[in-house]
Design a protein around this nucleic acid. Structure first.
Lengths: 335, 335
DNA sequence: ATGAAAGCGCTAACAA
DNA sequence: TTGTTAGCGCTTTCAT
């Protein structure tokens, strides 16, 4: 029925072990023997069984991506990058959606890692910052790479300097003449929210604009939360001339809320976001935003775990550059 | 080091097999014994090794989702649904991006299925329609469920009646007074493109409007292709008063192209799409579109494979309803 | 450079 | 209801 390694051995006229050597690209096989084995493998369409290899002590060539909030555009982009890395390195990718608030997250991840013998995992925010989980992963000895982890030293993964990026964005708004600049914060559990808020404040400071707590409202990274936050801002006695949302989805919600009041973007109010997801180009007016190379971040995180898997101690925390994407949603402060 | 089944057996004062019985929820274990075993499992934090179980002949509890073009919004929605189904049924999900045009797609899938001992796979368009692949999967005996497969009999999976949906959308445009209705086609490899075009023609026919090939232009489901297609339509001597794009991404591109010419949607031209992806609500004006329950489709496809895995011969091809989402991008014919 | 034998950790089949 | 035995298909020793 199923072709096994000794079928191949028989067909090639060698021992099982030799076939195994060829398959695993081990040394000490003559070219002639190697060729014979490869032919037999080809002819019999032999595929070594992952579970048997694994049980006998080899690697799984399997990594998992852990994430909360699967429906975020941002995570989908990261996922594409990780997938890309896995493909290029002949790894398979498993998806593990988790609730970052769940009590049993450590146990869940441990089960997955141990049971499926994962070679490594990729962590995405805010799971990147779960100390208990990281400690456990270290104990078990599974390499992991983080995307935008809050703690930046002694980690392997990828990040961008989001604080500087947010500051630059604010300074851009200032350069357009804006001084009443509002900020819609992201979800509190995410480091990104902290960094972006800090950058917002830094930008104001550099521009010599006083921080006005009234202009900073809560959001949760969703479209709806941007919509609602903007309505609160528009109800202010003196409304802002620019709104800096902590991500693109919220900025899209912001634009919608503004338009619904009969105001125009950027004529009456400028809006900008963060991330540069595809939606930033699709909406009208197209969104000025901070471009974070999410897909590349996913790819690099994937490559770094795999590097760490292959060579213990390898892997680093890589900083990637951001860029400001100036599009149509920001303009000069109204007359 | 690692806790094994006989450690648990020893701790519980029973045999390995009894532990195995408890773990696999097999009958013929006394409540008392079961309790003792569970306690031991708990205390030792025992996790059975998937590879060992698998090698000994059990299921992998692993399914893979096969797809081409990973960056499509639509597929991400489907993925979320599949993921959901897997979680609820204690299955793990692997992701297998493929090139539907690749020569070796059958071999690739076969390797994956055989090597990783996948219990089943979920197919998404256009991989759903690769006869050679389906034949091979049938041979190997791996259950699979398809999302929107072209062939609808003798399949398990999910679909919606896209042709009727497209027809209804055209009739909606007609009811608004439109008679010069254009269509931007989808990618030729997808059944969806055929059905939506057929529905477009059926709608025109029912409304007594002659089919004008000039008004039907090629697209490939991407934003950019919608943008370009629309520019071609706008260059026509007599331009359409409504554009029906075969999906939302292209409709977004269409709106952008229209706005760039200083025209307004829906004042000058109505635009509608298909799928009802999140972007349909985010763009301005919000998009009139056919709601296809992509996430539920993913979920059901996932549940159907799992059903087929558990009980050979089970599983069916389920039709799900569509709805017209009337939003702001369509309106009465100008003047 | 190649091979023989002994597991890896579990479950299936059989026995008791 | 419970236990014993013999693999599952591969890779690891350790020989040769």
């Amino acid at each position: 029925m199923r072709v096994r390694i000794d079928d191949v051995a028989k067909a090639a006229g060698v021992s099982m072990k030799t076939v195994s050597r060829v398959l695993n690209e081990e040394p000490n096989v003559s070219d002639e023997t190697r060729r014979k084995v490869q032919e037999a493998v080809e002819k019999l369409r032999y595929r070594p069984l992952a579970s048997a290899r694994l049980l006998a002590g080899r690697r799984s060539n399997l990594v998992a991506m852990l994430y909360d909030n699967p429906s975020s555009n941002y995570l989908m982009e990261v996922e594409l990058g990780v997938l890309d890395a896995c493909q290029s390195q002949h790894y398979n990718l498993m998806l593990a959606p988790l609730d970052y608030r769940a009590r049993d997250i450590v146990a869940k991840v441990e089960s997955l890692v141990v049971q499926s013998q994962l070679d490594g995992v990729v962590l995405t925010p805010p799971i990147t910052d779960d100390r208990a989980l990281l400690a456990r992963l270290d104990e078990i000895g599974v390499p992991y790479a983080s995307v935008s982890a809050q703690e930046r030293n002694r980690r392997i993964g990828v990040f961008v300097d989001e604080e500087s990026a947010a500051r630059d964005m604010v300074l851009h708004l200032v350069s357009l003449g804006h001084r009443r600049i509002a900020h819609i914060k992201g979800h509190a559990a995410h480091g990104a929210s902290r960094w972006r808020l800090a950058g917002y404040r830094a930008g104001l400071r550099e521009a010599g604009i006083a921080y006005d707590p009234e202009l900073v409202v809560a959001g949760r990274f969703f479209y709806e939360s941007g919509y609602e936050a903007t309505n609160r801002l528009l109800d202010l006695p003196q409304r802002p001339t620019a709104i800096f949302a902590a991500n693109d989805d919220m900025a899209a919600g912001s634009i919608c809320a503004i338009c619904e009041r009969g105001l125009a973007v950027p004529r009456d109010i400028s809006v900008c976001g963060f991330d540069d997801m595809p939606v930033a180009r699709f909406i009208y007016p197209s969104l000025t935003t901070v471009r974070q190379p999410s897909r590349d971040m996913g790819r690099l995180a994937g490559l770094e775990v795999i590097k760490a898997i292959r060579e213990r101690g390898a892997g680093e925390n890589i900083e990637l550059p951001y860029t400001l994407q100036l599009r149509r949603s920001t303009g000069a402060v109204p007359g």
